[in-house]
Every structure is written in C-alpha cells, then in structure tokens.
C-alpha cells in the first residue's frame, strides 16, 4: 500500500504550484519591502537624504557608548520580558488547558475557556489603560484598603524595580488565551484509551500529566515556545500603551520593539527626526538572533521525524 502511494507521488513542480499564490503575495508585500528595508541598515540620514555608511550603524549599536547603553538595556529587558512569557504565560496556559480538558465538565470548561480568552480580543489601548488605572495607588488605594490589601497600593508601573514585571504580567494576562487554546486542542487529541489504561494502573493526576499528557503534546509545546520567542522579541504595543515609547521609568521597560520604534520610526520626542538606518540595523540584529534561535530547534524536530 505504501509503495502504491509512493508510485503516485507527484513531482516537486506539482507541489510548487500550490505555493505560487501565497508566494506572490508574500514576496510582493512582505519579503521585498522587508529585504529592502534591511538594506537601509547600511545607510544613514533621513529618507530624503541617505548616504551609504557600510556597517557603521552596527558598529554604533555595539561600540558607541550612547547607543549601546540603550541597546544593551533594551536587549536585557527583552530577555526578561520573554522569560516572563515563557514561565508565566505558557505555564499558566498548560495548567488551564489541563484543567479545562477534564472530562464530564464540558459546560464549565467552555465558560472558563471563553473568559480566559476574552482579554486576547481587546485592543491593548484599552487593557493598558485599565491596568494603569488599577495599578495606580492614587485610584486603587481606597479599594485595596477596603479589602485589607493596603500593602498592594504601590506605584508598580512607576518604580524602576517593578515596572518591567508589572508590564510583563499584564501582557501575560492578555495573551495567555492563545497558548491555552493551542494546548487544549492538543490535549483533546489524546486518545481516551490511554487515560483508561492509566486510570486502571492507578496513576494519579500528576503522573498522568507528566508521563502521558506532556510527552504527547510536546510538538505543540515546541510551536508555542517558538511563537512566544518570536512574538516577544518583536513586542512593542504593551510597553508603548503603558509606559510610553521611552519605556518609562528611566528606560526600565524599554524593550527592543520600543527602542526600534523610537530610533527608526518616530524619532525621539519631541524632535521626532527618525534615523531609519539605525532602526533597520536594530531590527536586523533582532532578526538574526531569532533566526539563530529558531532554525536549530526546527531542524532538530525535523530530523527526529
């Protein structure tokens, strides 16, 4: 049977036809504009007046103390921001998914699933504003006093020591629905028989999770991890909405996305003259880091098959 299928296996050109429509859209509206913008990383000046400077922008990022201080700071903050998503968002995603795939509680499960997903659908403009309101002691002090949690009335978003954590957690709160959904989908695909068998063996919930569920959803864990990595290294909106494009206070929430925006797109307030070349160089380095992080993982899963 297998051989008969192989005999009918079409040639590469046939499959190539399937990719043509997507390739056309992708090349024209994404690959070309992106590659052309990467080219800008070799230039300095504004669009109306660009001069070729070779690798000067890259040198600046690493060796010009004014630029590199900001860059290294943003890079470290981005790593922290990413780790929060990995550890909080994705772990919560798995926990919720496991709890919400318990059999016999379909109705409850679907209600909770919807609730947990709702923040994902909201514009960050709104969630950012709401959390700024809630996390601000000026407004929340009375409420916190009333429920006996006065100690929580702190300017979380205004202190350099806590701002990045607060912003990261708000972002996790907003996006946890997506990994949860992906894990729910994967967990539901696990055959009932395996659970039956485990139940008969007397395995407890914990053992079932570690020994059966987690190994079986490993591919999805991989996908989620890669998406988290890629998305958070390009994150921008949540910091912009909650801590301005500067990553206030004192650049403590400045991540690569906001640095890129400030340098390459908007220019520093209030002058607002961007440096597209330097911005492109920042994005290019991020791109190379992501490629370096993602490709080995993908190749590894590929060779395993």
């Amino acid at each position: 049977m297998h051989s008969s299928y192989n005999r009918l296996e079409p040639r590469g050109f046939y499959w190539f036809l399937y990719t043509i429509p997507a390739l056309l859209v992708y090349i024209f509206f994404m690959a070309y504009p992106l590659l052309d913008s990467i080219r800008l990383s070799m230039y300095s000046g504004t669009y109306s007046n660009m001069t070729f400077v070779g690798l000067e922008n890259f040198r600046k990022i690493f060796f010009d103390s004014e630029v590199s201080t900001r860059y290294v700071n943003a890079l470290l903050n981005t790593v922290v921001f990413f780790l929060y998503h990995m550890l909080v968002q994705n772990v919560l995603g798995i926990i919720f998914a496991v709890l919400l795939t318990q059999r016999g509680k379909e109705r409850r499960n679907s209600i909770y699933q919807t609730i947990i997903f709702i923040p994902t659908t909201l514009a960050i403009l709104v969630t950012g504003y709401l959390w700024k309101l809630i996390l601000n002691p000026v407004w929340s002090k009375n409420l916190l006093d009333a429920i006996g949690l006065s100690a929580l009335a702190q300017p979380w978003l205004g202190k350099e020591s806590t701002a990045l954590t607060a912003v990261s957690l708000v972002s996790c709160w907003q996006w946890v629905g997506i990994p949860m959904m992906m894990f729910v989908a994967a967990l539901r695909n696990i055959s009932e028989d395996i659970f039956e068998a485990a139940n008969i063996e007397g395995a407890n919930r914990w053992q079932v999770f570690w020994r059966i569920q987690l190994p079986l959803i490993k591919p999805v864990v991989g996908i989620v991890a890669i998406l988290t990595f890629v998305n958070n290294f390009n994150a921008f909106d949540v910091v912009f909405a909650m801590e301005t494009a500067n990553g206030a206070p004192g650049y403590s929430t400045d991540i690569l996305g906001t640095l890129f925006y400030r340098v390459g797109i908007a220019g520093q307030h209030p002058i607002g003259i961007p440096n597209p070349g330097l911005g492109a160089a920042i994005a290019t380095i991020t791109f190379l880091m992501l490629i370096a992080g993602v490709i080995p993982v993908l190749l590894k899963t590929r060779t395993k098959e």
Partner: peptide, 21 residues
C-alpha cells in the same frame, strides 16, 4: 506630590485636580 507620583500620568494629574484630589 501625590502618593505614588511615580505612576501618576498626565491624565491622572488632570483628574486629580478636577476631582479636588
């Protein structure tokens, strides 16, 4: 300054003054 002034935005300041805070 208001307590928690580090997290007080411009919008909050306006609201504070207008609500006699």
């Amino acid at each position: 300054l208001p307590s928690g002034f580090e997290a007080v935005t411009y919008n909050d300041s306006q609201a504070l003054f207008s609500s006699q805070g």
